[in-house]
C-alpha cells in the first residue's frame, strides 16, 4: 500500500499508529460523484442541508476517481456499463471503499434480466450493502457510519495492492 507500510517495516509496529491513521481516514471519506440510475438522487439529497453528510466528513464529492476514496455504486448496473464502472474503480487510488447502494447494485433488484449485472460484487469488491428501492438518504448515512466502523478496525496488513477479484 502506501507510505506507512514501508515505514513500519523499518520500525516497531505500534497499534496506536494504525488507530491514528484509521481515525484520520474515517472522517474524510471522500465519495466519487457518480451515479448510474435513480438511486443517485438519494445520494445527492444526502449532501443537502436536511441530511448533510458533511457532519460525517464526507461532503467533498470528487468528480475525479483519482481523488476519491469511496465509490458509491448507486443504481442499476447494466452489462454495457460494467467495463466503465470497473475502470473507474481501478482508477481510484488506494485506500478505496465501495458501497453498493440500492437493491439493483446489491443483487440486480427487480431486473432479473439479460442486460443487468446481478450485483456489482461480481465485478468489484463491495464493503457495505444498502438494500432498498431506493434507500432513503438516511440509509446512506447509516452505511457511511458502518463503513467508518469498518475503517476503524482495519490494519495496514489488510490492504494490499489489490485489484478487483
Amino acid at each position: 500500500m502506501g507510505i506507512e507500510e514501508r515505514e513500519l517495516e523499518r520500525n516497531v509496529l505500534i497499534t496506536s499508529v494504525e488507530k491514528l491513521v484509521n481515525w484520520g481516514r474515517k472522517f474524510s471519506v471522500w465519495p466519487l460523484t457518480f451515479g448510474l440510475a435513480c438511486c443517485a438522487l438519494e445520494f445527492i439529497v444526502a449532501g443537502s442541508a436536511t441530511v448533510d453528510m458533511a457532519r460525517f466528513g464526507s461532503e467533498v464529492a470528487r468528480p475525479s476517481p483519482r481523488q476519491a476514496d469511496l465509490m458509491l455504486v448507486a443504481g442499476t448496473l447494466t452489462k454495457k456499463m460494467a467495463p466503465m464502472v470497473k475502470r473507474i474503480y481501478e482508477q481510484m487510488a488506494e485506500p478505496k471503499w465501495v458501497i453498493a447502494f440500492g437493491s439493483c447494485a446489491c443483487t440486480g433488484g427487480i431486473f432479473r434480466s439479460y442486460n443487468v449485472v446481478q450485483g456489482v460484487d461480481q465485478i468489484i469488491p463491495v464493503d457495505v450493502y444498502v438494500p432498498g428501492c431506493p434507500p432513503r438518504p438516511e440509509s446512506f448515512l447509516a452505511a457511511l457510519i458502518k463503513l467508518q466502523k469498518k475503517i476503524e478496525r482495519e490494519t495496514v496488513r489488510d490492504r494490499k495492492l489489490i485489484s478487483a477479484p
Binding site: 452489462k79 460494467a82 467495463p83 470497473k86 475502470r87 481501478e90 432479473r112 434480466s113 439479460y114 442486460n115 449485472v117 446481478q118 461480481q122 465485478i123
Partner: peptide, 17 residues
Amino acid sequence: FPAEGYDFDKPFEVKLE
C-alpha cells in the same frame, strides 16, 4: 430468448480493453 438470457447462471466477467 429467455428473459434472463443464456448466461444467467454463469458469473459475469468484465474484460477491460
